[in-house]
Design a protein around this nucleic acid. Structure first.
Lengths: 250, 250
DNA sequence: AAAATCTTCACACAATTTTCACAACAATGC
DNA sequence: GCATTGTTGTGAAAATTGTGTGAAGATTTT
C-alpha cells in the first residue's frame, strides 16, 4: 500500500491529555488517520492491530516506559518513530535514537516542524515500502505467527505471548527466543548451528544438546501430542523448522 | 555494498574551517571515510565523484546556497542529508526538510547527538540498500533446478526441498548433497572422483560403492521408473550427470 | 530460602551411512 | 555367437550417527 493511495495511519502515544487531543486534531485536519493512546502497554496492542505507518511517542508513560515500548515494537515492526519528550538530556536522546527511534523532538516544539519531520519520515518509509512490495521479503512486519487453524499455534510477537488451542502458554526466555527464531523463518529449515548461534550466541555452535532439550520443552508445552509433533519439526541431520504461517487477514 | 562491510563514506559540506576540521577528525576517528568541502558548487562535483553514503550539510555557503545544493543533489542522489545550521528559524528548517533533508540540527549541537543521528540515517539507508540489492541484484546462481516439465524433477536450493511430479520428497543429507552437486552442474558429466571428493570429502576418492548406493537411493525416490532413469544418468566409465535445466523465462 | 530456569549427562531408539556379496550389463577380442 | 573383463545396479546386513527422553546438578531469579 503506497502512502499516497489512502490516508496514512499515525499512532500517537502521549501521556498528556491536552497535547494528545491537540495532536490528534491537527493530524486529522491534515488528512491523517490518527489514533491515540496514553499508556505504553495499550500502545503495543494498538500498534499490532492498527498497524500505523508512523508513531509519535512520548517517552514518559505510565505502566510501560517509552524506551521499553520502543524496544518491544522494534522486535517486529519497522514503522518510523518520532519521539516527543520534555527531557533534553543528551543521554536520553542518544539512547532513544539508538534504540530505534527515527527522530527526537524536545518539548515544546513547533507544530510545523513536527509536521515537516513527519513528512520526512514518511517519505523514507514510503520508499522502502515500495521496494519491499516487489520482493518476497515477508520477514518481520507481521506481528503474529499463526499455524494450524483454530486450535493451532499462535506466536504474538508484539505481546511476547504464545497460545496453543486458544490457551496462553508460559515460556521461559530461552524457549521464547528459540520459538521466535523458528517462527520468524517459518517454512525454512534452520540448521543446528544457525539456531545455536542466534539464540545462545556465537560461542555455542557445537552444543546440540541444548537444542534437543529446549525443543523438547517447547513440544511438551505446545504440541497436542508431543510424540507426533505438528509444529516443531525436525529435518534429520540438518536442523529444525516450523510450517509456514497460515495466510491471514489484515 | 552493505554499510557494515567497509568504511562508510561521509561528505561534509561546511563553510566554517574550524568546524570542518573538527568534524572531519571526529568522523575519521570513528571509522568513517570522510571528505570535506567548503563550497556548494564543489560539493556537487565531489558528491558525484565520492558517492557518499551520508552528507552533512551547512546551509550558509558561498557560491551555491545550501538549499540549492540539496535541490540539485536530490535530482540524482538519495543519500541521506543531515543539515547543520546556525539558523533556528522554523521556516528555514521546514524548507530544508521538505527539500529533501533527512534531519536538521541547530548549531551549536552536541557531537554525540549528531553521531547518534548519523547512525539513525545510516541504519535506514542500509535497510533500503539491502532491499534494493535483493530485487535488482542478479542472482549468480539460479535458485532452482527444473527438469522434465510438469511431472519432472525440481530442486529448490533455497528451501532445501525436492519435488517430483509435484510431490515433495524427503532426502537424507547425503542424498541431498549428491543431488545438489549434480544439479548445480546440470548437463555436465561429473567423474566419480569429483563427486566423491565434493560430497564425502577429499579422503574418499576411491569409494565408488558409496556412489552406486546413493545414486540408487536417489533413483528409487525420484525416478518414475528406476529401471530406466530419466534424471540421474550414467556415463559408463566416467561418472554421473543430470540433464540440463529446463529454460524458464519469467 | 524457594522457585524457576538453564546446563549437563547417560541411555534408548530410529534414521542414516557404510559395508559386503552378488547379479546384470556393456564393451572387447576371439 | 561366446567368454572375458571391468563397470554398474541390487538387496540386505552391520556400524554409525542423530534424535528423543528423563532426570539430576548448577545457576539465576524472586
Amino acid at each position: 500500500m503506497s502512502i499516497s493511495d489512502k490516508k496514512v495511519r499515525v499512532l500517537c502515544v502521549e501521556d498528556d491529555p491536552q497535547l494528545r487531543t491537540f495532536l490528534l486534531a491537527q493530524l486529522k485536519a491534515r488528512g491523517f488517520q490518527a489514533q491515540a493512546v496514553s499508556d505504553g502497554a495499550q500502545a503495543i496492542d494498538l500498534a499490532a492491530i492498527f498497524q500505523p505507518q508512523l508513531i509519535l511517542l512520548d517517552l514518559s508513560l505510565p505502566t510501560l516506559d517509552g524506551l521499553e515500548f520502543l524496544r518491544r515494537l522494534r522486535e517486529w515492526s519497522k514503522a518510523p518513530v518520532i519521539v516527543l519528550s520534555a527531557r533534553d538530556e543528551e543521554l536520553v536522546k542518544i539512547k532513544a535514537l539508538d534504540e530505534g527511534a527515527d527522530d527526537y523532538l524536545t518539548k515544546p516544539f513547533s507544530l510545523n516542524e513536527l509536521l515537516a519531520r513527519v513528512r520526512v519520515a514518511l517519505r523514507r518509509a514510503d520508499e522502502t515500502e515500495r521496494l519491499r512490495s516487489g520482493t518476497t521479503g515477508s520477514d518481520l512486519q507481521r506481528p503474529v505467527y499463526k499455524c494450524g487453524g483454530e486450535n493451532g499455534l499462535v506466536v504474538d510477537f508484539a505481546h511476547r505471548v504464545v497460545r496453543t488451542g486458544g490457551i496462553e502458554v508460559h515460556l521461559t526466555p530461552t524457549e521464547y527466543d528459540l520459538l521466535c527464531e523458528l517462527s520468524r523463518n517459518a517454512g525454512k529449515v534452520l540448521t543446528h548451528r544457525e539456531l545455536l548461534q542466534r539464540v545462545w550466541g556465537p560461542d555455542y555452535s557445537g552444543e546440540n544438546t541444548y537444542l534437543r532439550t529446549f525443543i523438547r520443552h517447547l513440544r511438551r508445552k505446545l504440541e497436542p501430542d508431543p510424540t507426533q509433533p505438528r509444529f516443531l519439526l525436525n529435518e534429520l541431520g540438518v536442523g529444525y523448522f516450523v510450517p509456514p504461517s497460515d495466510s491471514q487477514e489484515l
